[in-house]
Design a protein around this nucleic acid. Structure first.
Lengths: 206, 206
DNA sequence: AAAAATCCGTAATTTAGGTTACGCTTTTCA
DNA sequence: TGAAAAGCGTAACCTAAATTACGGATTTTT
């Protein structure tokens, strides 16, 4: 199989695996069900991915690239860091509480070895945080934000934005939030963030 | 078996189940391993709890009572709501990121029916939030806090305190935080909370 | 005290899925 | 073009655990 055919085939397989993960959970997404979903054989899946965990690690890694790309798209054309932060909250929150992210996090929670957790963390916090840190740093550089470090500022932004929505989604204690709720949360988080971090405030050690 | 003997026996079983949950995860905590751990038989466990999920639902419910009791103990003797809020952050964060809470949340994440999630939510947010809401309401009543609602204020407090620590613990992307880190986080969250919610500030719609 | 109910220890039943194997077909490579 | 490699469809192998069953022992009830 040529590399580009194989690459497309791999994407088909990984997409099917992800869909099954969302609908059946990790335990229910058997290798055989993935194989049948794309007209592949078990042997091919094992040859290409090694084992079940290998397949879902690949799914997580592909997702990490997608998250990064989507964030970059949301930030494209935003020269002003504060405007960019204001803009990015809603799509970010929507991604993190959406079915795919939740399914991946549930798989990580169900994996006692911790391997999936590491792969999934790359598509979660590790894909998100550096971009937010960069925006906060740019805001500091422009005199628009006053924080003890860009990292601490970014962390605060994410806490205000996400809170416990993600964990409640993962444990099944919360349904998919509506778009209006996501938008309201993003707005409110940004207001709180600026109240805490804009220079006009008392110097607050954040 | 008399009721008090049975009640004690049940506690033994549930404690053993919880320990196995912490060390082996939900999939690894088989009914047979629980039975062996307390010298009971499978038949007794099935008779008393119906099925595996029933056993772990009972574990979650027992834990819910424990969380509430521990919070009340941490709040005992605190007449001043702001002092109480200041005092409760650290023990709360320690509980929520500790091995038991994490193990229970992981079990919930692994359960596709959502039943464990519901039971566990009772010991999590649903045990915690009303107590924080009451404290915030008392702070408002004493003119010490200015928020749009006690619920919104309590929610903000928890976001600042917990952030994504819980979900990162659940997916295996974070180790148990050290006591010093927990204490620092609780302090910083309280400072941010008061900055946002103390009446001296601009009226902020939180 | 005797009967009934329950518990223990063990094994049997059932099911499911991870993984490997195999014959045939298709694709790739020399 | 022919040989080798890889992929498909299917089945076999293996393991583990959820659940039920059973005989004997213990506890509870009458």
């Amino acid at each position: 199989m040529r590399e580009e055919t194989r690459s497309g085939r791999r994407k088909e397989i990984e997409d099917a695996a992800c869909r099954l993960l969302e609908t059946q959970g990790y335990a229910g997404a058997s290798m055989l069900s993935v194989a049948k979903a794309v007209g592949a054989s078990n042997e091919t899946l094992y040859r290409w991915y090694g084992d079940k965990k290998g397949l879902f690690r690949a799914v997580a890694e592909a997702n990490a690239e997608t998250v990064g790309a989507r964030l970059d798209a949301a930030l494209a054309g935003q020269g002003d860091p504060i405007a960019a932060l204001t803009e990015v909250g809603e799509p970010l929150l929507k991604m993190l509480t959406g079915p795919r992210a939740v399914a991946l996090n549930r798989a990580a929670a169900a994996d006692p070895t911790g391997e999936l957790g590491k792969a999934i963390a790359e598509g979660g916090r590790e894909a998100v945080l550096p971009r937010i840190v960069a925006l906060v740093a740019a805001g500091v550089g422009a005199g628009r934000l006053d924080v003890s470090s860009a990292e601490a500022g970014a962390d605060l932004f994410l806490r205000l934005l996400i809170g416990d929505w993600q964990v409640r989604r993962v444990i099944g204690a919360m349904e998919v939030p509506e778009q209006a709720a996501i938008a309201a949360r993003a707005r409110e988080a940004m207001v709180a963030f600026l109240t805490l971090c804009a220079p006009a405030n008392d110097p607050l050690t954040i």
